[in-house]
């Protein structure tokens, strides 16, 4: 049963109850309690396809978000974020609740999931093989990822390339894709069918709006994928498209330095990244035009499929 199978009133009531709601998001079970009515309504809209993990034996994270009542006409409403009863973050403005919740979940995963190698990368899949898009902030990863998942690719994740050390499989974690500033209109124009939530202005990353993961990506979130390609994207205004092969040693270094926990896993990471780079074709991609970038990646990967 998914969240949207409940009525909004029931979902909201359960979210604000003392036991909260258990949700399966990729390989993790989140127990979520909200005392923040605006946020509950948004989650009902944007997290609608996540299945309820009723009766889950293990909850990976206990998350609670609580907004204080308006303390006065001139004072800001705040929201407090709890992880397993602790508050790792300072109070944040209540009108940034959703970006805060999403960043909070990223923080939880990055802090705790060291049984997996966590690449800072978007990952999309087609025909069982995935493009891994590692990138630094501002390089256009999320924009490209949002465009790809509206062009025939399945979303595994926009933020975490989760790799299982035992077999090198990529685990899906289909979460909201946070678009920033100009990218919001770019994706509205590129993919009119994309479901994009409201814009949050004045966050620490500027204006943020979230793309809802396609229902099919959430429904298939237990299907792993094999690494097929490493593509390191970089958006450069006005640049012609350049998709160029990279040396594998260079790709290794970029993957390792950009992973969340390469050094934590030690030799396991070294050998795992080595196997992944060995199995993948590695490219750098400089782009300014999304259509051109999607077409180039399509041709690249179809050639391998044929």
């Amino acid at each position: 049963m998914t969240i949207c199978a409940l009525s909004y009133d029931l979902a909201s009531q359960r979210l604000s109850s003392t036991s909260g709601v258990d949700l399966q998001i990729g390989p993790f079970v989140f127990n979520l309690r909200l005392h923040c009515p605006d946020l509950a309504r948004l989650l009902y809209e944007l997290w609608r396809d996540y299945p309820l993990a009723e009766g889950a034996a293990v909850r990976d994270f206990h998350i609670q978000a609580t907004s204080n009542p308006a303390p006065g006409r001139w004072l800001r409403r705040d929201v407090r974020f709890f992880v397993d009863g602790r508050t790792p973050f300072p109070l944040l403005p209540a009108h940034h609740h959703l970006p805060m919740l999403e960043w909070g979940l990223n923080w939880c995963i990055a802090q705790r999931s060291h049984h997996l190698l966590m690449l800072h990368a978007a990952v999309v899949e087609r025909n069982g093989r995935a493009i891994i898009l590692p990138a630094w902030p501002g390089h256009g990863k999320s924009t490209l990822c949002a465009a790809l998942i509206h062009s025939g690719w399945r979303l595994l994740c926009d933020e975490f390339g989760l790799v299982r050390p035992e077999d090198g499989a990529l685990l899906p974690l289909p979460r909201l894709i946070p678009l920033k500033n100009e990218s919001i209109e770019v994706i509205r124009s590129f993919a009119p069918s994309a479901h994009i939530g409201p814009s949050f202005y004045g966050t620490r990353k500027g204006t943020i709006a979230h793309v809802r993961p396609p229902t099919e990506s959430v429904e298939r979130m237990h299907e792993t994928a094999r690494p097929g390609w490493f593509v390191f994207p970089r958006w450069v205004a006005g640049s012609p498209l350049r998709l160029e092969p990279m040396l594998k040693s260079e790709a290794f270094l970029m993957v390792a330095t950009n992973a969340f926990n390469y050094e934590v896993l030690g030799q396991t990471s070294f050998e795992l990244v080595g196997r992944m780079v060995d199995a993948c074709d590695c490219y750098s991609l400089v782009y300014s035009d999304l259509d051109q970038a999607i077409k180039a990646l399509d041709e690249l990967t179809r050639a391998a499929d044929d």
């Binding site: 040396l247 594998k248 040693s249 290794f252 270094l253 390792a256 050094e263 030690g266 030799q267 070294f270 050998e271 080595g274 780079v277 060995d278």
Partner: peptide
């Protein structure tokens, strides 16, 4: 030491220090 190599470039991992050398 553990190593991987492609073409003329090598990466060596030192298990004791946890450092990777190119």
């Amino acid at each position: 030491l553990v190593d991987v190599a492609w073409e003329n470039e090598h990466l060596v991992y030192c298990v004791d220090s946890g450092e990777t050398h190119f």
